[in-house]
Amino acid sequence: MIRDVNEKAFTTLKNIPFAPAYKHTLVSVNSGFRTEKPVCNRDKCNGCFLCYLYCPDGVISKDGESISINYDYCKGCGICQKICRKDAIHMEKER
């Protein structure tokens, strides 16, 4: 799921909590300021999952023997591409 609720769901006295405390909630994605995105070549990937481990945003998840990337929250930092020993990830320019 990209978002839990719409940002506008919390704007009035009626729908904001009585104190600044609330459960985990996502109302916006983080991909807006990305200029490049990582793309994984599953043929080259050996499933070492170092990219998954080192991702600051936790957007890479294990997917069988390889990985999948959540592009809604990936900021395109490129750490995954650098950490990959098999050259399985390359960065693609966002259009």
């Binding site: 996502l26 600051p56 945003d57 929250y73 490129g78």
Partner: peptide, 12 residues
């Protein structure tokens, strides 16, 4: 998850 840290943030 879903935080607004800068890309490539070591602290995050």
């Amino acid at each position: 998850f879903g935080h607004k840290a800068c890309a490539g943030c070591g602290g995050a």
